[in-house]
């Protein structure tokens, strides 16, 4: 039993570390950006401790920077979080042996742990311990990176160092590598066009992001369906 745990610990560490570096990079960007919307060192790190979600936190601070209110930030994050439902559902069997601890492990569910854990469960069956180690490594990386980012953000003069440009650059770096396949590219293009139209009609509208989060994926679905019937 102990031997199995040891080997799971080793595998989890080896598989999580490269991704932890990537997560730390997002985390640092988040830390810098949060200080740009007047989060203190404490609140910047607190958000990472309590929320622990790259997409939710980055989108929240970017929306605040654009002048959005709390309600529209929350609605957008709820929309963004819908995919966690999928991850949770897909991981539930593999995490089931943890029994009452599954509710604690649930806190670690997000994009990267999902990818690693689902591959692991496919290979060796349920393994909550592996998931706990992976999520734990990511959690530590995420918090330390936010702290580091906030320290940097507090030191630099935003205008001089172009920290305002770190927002769009971060989002470009998040978006571009994932643009593969017609449905995904179609969703992104639809989002771009819809945003331009909606901004043109009513500049600075708070609901734009939520509306586009709801509408643009329909274009992706349409392209997916058309691709299948043609193939």
């Amino acid at each position: 039993m102990l031997h199995r745990k040891k080997s799971a610990l080793k595998t989890a560490g080896a598989e999580a570390l490269p991704l932890a570096i990537a997560i730390a990079a997002y985390g640092m960007s988040y830390g810098v950006l949060a200080t740009q919307v007047n989060f203190t060192l404490l609140t910047t790190v607190a958000m990472s401790v309590f929320v622990f979600s790259g997409s939710a936190q980055l989108v929240a601070v970017a929306m605040l920077a654009g002048g959005a209110g709390t309600a529209s930030v929350l609605l957008t994050v709820i929309l963004l979080n819908l995919r966690n439902l999928l991850y949770g559902a897909a991981l539930s069997e593999g995490l089931a042996p943890a029994k009452k601890w599954t509710r604690l492990l649930a806190f670690g569910i997000s994009d990267e742990p999902f990818v690693l854990a689902s591959a692991r469960f496919k290979k060796v069956g349920p393994d909550p311990f592996y998931f706990a180690v992976v999520a734990g490594i990511f959690y530590i990386a995420w918090i330390l990176a936010a702290l580091f980012g906030a320290l940097i953000g507090n030191q630099l003069d935003p205008q001089k160092w172009g920290l305002d440009l770190a927002f769009p650059a971060t989002f470009a770096a998040l978006l571009v590598p994932g643009l593969k396949g017609k449905p995904v590219i179609g969703t992104a293009l639809a989002a771009v066009i819809l945003t331009l139209v909606m901004e043109f009609i009513k500049p600075g509208n708070e609901l734009t992001i939520i509306m586009i989060g709801l509408l643009a994926p329909l274009v992706g679905l349409y392209l997916h369906r058309r691709g299948r019937t043609h193939a």
Binding site: S55, V59, A62, M63, G66, T76, L79, L80, L82, R83, L85, L86, F167, P168, F171, A172, L174, L175, G178, L179, P183, V184, T187, A188, L189, A190, A191, V192, L194, T195, L196, E199, T208, I209, I212, G213, L214, L215, A216, P217, L218, G220, L221, H224
Partner: peptide, 20 residues
């Protein structure tokens, strides 16, 4: 599929809102 496309749409929209 819809749930998976939502983040792409939101990130793209946020990007445009910063460029324009």
């Amino acid at each position: 599929l819809y749930f998976n496309y939502v983040p792409i749409a939101i990130i793209a929209a946020l990007l445009v809102k910063q460029i324009v």
